[in-house]
């Protein structure tokens, strides 16, 4: 595989993993019975989710622009 293809797939994978992990594990737990249910487990977890979205879609730009 070409280097640009590998980087592209890595970016997509990293983006998706960030999305999944931050959504299911780092964000606010799915409950509403305690104070902890109002705070994300990791600060700025939603920003990590959004970062994942941005990285995943940036891979398209990289792939299009990259020189082999």
């Amino acid at each position: 595989m070409k280097r640009s293809t590998i980087v592209t797939w890595t970016m997509i994978a990293v983006g998706v993993v960030l999305m999944v992990v931050s959504y299911f594990f780092l964000a606010t737990p799915w409950c509403n019975t305690a104070v902890e249910c109002s705070n994300p487990r990791v600060p700025f977890a939603p920003a990590i989710f959004v970062l994942g979205v941005l990285i995943a879609f940036s891979s398209a730009v990289y792939y299009a622009v990259a020189k082999d």
Binding site: A27, T28, S38, P46
Partner: peptide, 9 residues
């Protein structure tokens, strides 16, 4: 705060 505390629920 949306990026800091946003809740998926």
């Amino acid at each position: 705060n949306l990026f800091r505390y946003g809740r998926p629920q």
